[in-house]
């Protein structure tokens, strides 16, 4: 029998500020989730893993990485559990512990966005896409869409910057 981490639920509840012990596994969250079919472990099962202390399994699952936080599940949850907050917490623990990330492309995209915010205080979409593609070593997929967006002037060449940039930068320095 696998060993269970009895503190895991407390850890996730403290981070997510969510009383996930209320979950009775009705699966409403997963059945309404637009992305459950691409998750290896679906939202209700992630919650179950957290409740029962299957820490390793939860931290390795792709589910939290494919959750976009659209709140469809938490709107539908009969027990008013903030499920995306649970997903945030599980994902953040995995990052903190330098776990292997099951969806590296999702993580690379988040990092590209955050680097842009750190650099400019705002998102510079063209640079985000270029840097994301470089990290992915995949320069050519979506090239057609990128070019169409450029032609339609949907991607500015120059970044719009916050004047008081140090104010934003220091948030990142503390975080790291």
């Amino acid at each position: 029998m696998k060993s269970c981490d009895t503190n895991f639920a407390k850890e996730v509840m403290a981070l997510s500020k969510t009383t996930l012990t209320r979950c009775f596994s009705c699966m409403t969250c997963s059945s309404g989730c637009q992305f459950q079919h691409i998750m290896d472990v679906k939202p209700h099962a992630i919650i179950r893993m957290v409740q029962t202390g299957f820490r390793e399994e939860a931290l390795q699952a792709s589910g939290p990485w494919l959750c976009v936080g659209c709140n469809t599940c938490s709107t539908n949850c009969p027990n008013a559990i903030d499920i995306p907050a649970v997903m945030d917490a599980v994902r953040q623990i995995a990052i903190k512990e330098n776990r292997r990330i099951p969806e590296p492309n999702v993580n690379n995209f988040h990092n590209a966005v955050l680097n842009s915010i750190k650099r400019y205080g705002r998102t510079h979409k063209l640079e985000i896409m270029m840097r994301y593609k470089l990290v992915q070593r995949d320069l050519f997929s979506d090239m057609d869409i990128g070019l169409r967006m450029l032609a339609k002037r949907k991607l500015d060449l120059r970044a719009s910057k916050v004047k008081e940039l140090p104010e934003v930068k220091k948030l990142f320095n503390k975080a790291s």
Binding site: Q92, H110, I117, T123, F172
Partner: peptide, 25 residues
């Protein structure tokens, strides 16, 4: 004037504190 990004999905996905601070600015 001088608004900054709210952090979007990416901030709360990887760092809830950072997401909170980006929004409160």
């Amino acid at each position: 004037p001088d608004w900054s990004c709210c952090g979007s999905s990416s901030a709360h996905c990887v760092d809830s504190e950072l997401a909170h601070d980006l929004a409160t600015r």
